[in-house]
Nucleic acid binder design. Sequence first.
RNA 1: GUGGCUAUGGUGUAAUGGUUAGCACUCGGCUCUGUGAAAGCCGCAGUAUGGGUUCGAAUCCCAUUAGUCACCCCA
Length: 439
Amino acid sequence: MSDKSKKLNTEAYKGVRDFFPADMAVEKSIFSIWRSVAEKYGYEEYGASVLEPAELYRAKSGEEMVNEQTYTFIDRGDREVTLRPEMTPTVARMVAAKKRELTFPLRWYSIPNLFRYEQPQRGRVREHWQLNVDIFGVNSINAEIELISIAYDIMRAYGLKDTDFEIRINNRKLMNYITRDVFGLDEATAQKVSKLIDKKDKMKPDDFTVALMDIIKPTIQDAAKFESVFDSFLTVLNSKNFEEFTSHLPQTKEEHVGLKEVRETIAGLEKLGITNVRFDQTLMRGFDYYTGVVFEVFDLNPANRRSVFGGGRYDDLLALFGNEKVSGVGFGAGDVIARDIMETYKTLPATSAPADIAICVVGEQNIAYSLDVAQGLRAKSTRVSVDLSGKKLGDQIGNADKRGILKVICIGDEEVKTGKLRVKDLKSGNEEDIDTGSL
RNA sequence: GUGGCUAUGGUGUAAUGGUUAGCACUCGGCUCUGUGAAAGCCGCAGUAUGGGUUCGAAUCCCAUUAGUCACCCCA
């Protein structure tokens, strides 16, 4: 008698995915796009364990992030362990460990699975795979240009046209300059403002204005001064393009380095034929470790209003490990959004059959012979699946067809005796003699 | 973590608190034991889980689990 309460649930753990063969085929095609583009640019693949000591993330992300957003537990040896929520600290650790024996610039990529303890919803899961591409040891914005053009090539490989997506860039140096130097906000206020700017696109303009006022007002006593600071700040933030934005900044003899970097990055990409790049002064990115250019790639289709890629320059990260500075620029691209995009644009490759030829066996006594024939074919790199079901021949052929296998060879007493085999093409129905001697 | 919405065979769906929970696809078997795709017949399989209200619950209520949306957070 069956006890319902004792049955195990077939569902995957909350927020993680099973990859059945059809899903895995999609996943593999995404990975293969990632790999081929990264390798075309001369990047080498590396890997690491999903387990990291919790302090690796504490150092940079703070208690709250580690406690509430990660899978963290105590192992049997009383060590605090975290399932990696991102790859950058790991790669920084690896690079720092071997810094003296590595040849810079270093071009590395990886496709790690990452974990975060969050409320799952569409496009947001607890375990996902992410392409991470990083270049270390290049101080010029040529690194940014290279990374962004990799991201661009991947978008094209997903099957999108230039007009389907947009690359948005900003520069941390610029925002720091504006909030601190130009408008004189203190560190804490600047921080709050940054967080707010990050959400600007999601808010109604009026709500944003009010929220911004609430943050800035308490820090400026003089009402008249506040009025003028606030208005010009708002004007800067609402600039429609790079030229307008620049014109609102105080003119000095030398162009600010942040502006220069953005200008040169856009120009550099343009020379490579990448023209769908847009300056966006509201682009912030959550990470504290970014120090220069930051960028994101967006699908313009309203179905996928999330960033497809995100990255930037982090020049100080390796200092955490006591090393002298090594500059880094990197980005991440998730598999979930990649899948959504390729579904939206219907660019997913057709699923391929699990084998090139199916061998249908009539009579159990002929299986040994069939296996031998299969080995001969496999030696020539043909993918062969031998039907071991013992079903009727018609069913075996039907099954091969259902799996998308295009050709079958039927083997029974007759074939074993004469050694003459015929290949049947399931599309045309034609049969063709093949020479077993050549197998 | 907070709030809203949702949950019926493997899949998609139907059923004013009142028959044996219906249909399609899929799957298995057969018509048809050495040649598939068609057609027909037969069959397997379900009210997410645990409670409650009621003479009676897929239907109403509560909790749990999961999905989804918004918030939080965004790596």
